[in-house]
């Protein structure tokens, strides 16, 4: 695993990326945030990301479609779903489709960091095997 993780944040509320980016960058990781999921998918074609954090309910392309795309193109990318309006049932659907975990709004960046750390551990274990 590289020292610095490449993390993508997708949420159609601009404030989410604005608040998460500096909080997650503190650890030295590279964070890219997108409000438009189409643009985010285009970026995913260009570059590999270790972790993608995406809101479930978004206009145009929703979080579950983003997940489908990632799982069919980059299986080792860990996807963390954010639920705001969506209930746990939708989050469970995401898990069944291969998402790593989910977190419900409102949350503190520290809570998200705990999930990211778990994802990193799994990524490391996968690389070892």
């Amino acid at each position: 695993m590289p020292d610095k993780l490449k993390i993508m944040v997708i949420d159609d509320e601009e404030i989410v990326g604005k608040r998460l980016k500096p909080a997650l960058e503190k650890r030295g990781d590279i964070i890219e945030s997108f409000v438009n999921s189409k643009e985010a998918l285009a970026r995913l074609v260009e570059e590999h990301f270790d972790i993608v954090i995406t809101d479930i309910r978004m206009d145009e392309i929703d979080g579950l479609e983003v997940l489908d795309y990632i799982k069919s193109h980059s299986k080792d990318t860990k996807v963390i779903m954010i639920t705001g309006y969506a209930t746990v049932e939708v989050a469970r659907e995401a898990l069944a489709k291969g998402a790593f975990d989910f977190i419900a709004k409102p949350f503190k960046p520290e809570d998200l960091r705990i999930i990211i750390n778990k994802a990193v551990k799994e990524l490391n274990a996968e690389q070892m095997t």
Partner: peptide, 14 residues
């Protein structure tokens, strides 16, 4: 009570 309004549901770390 953390007010999650206007912060997109992302609260401040304590």
């Amino acid at each position: 009570f953390n007010t999650a309004k206007d912060v997109g549901g992302i609260l401040d770390d304590e």
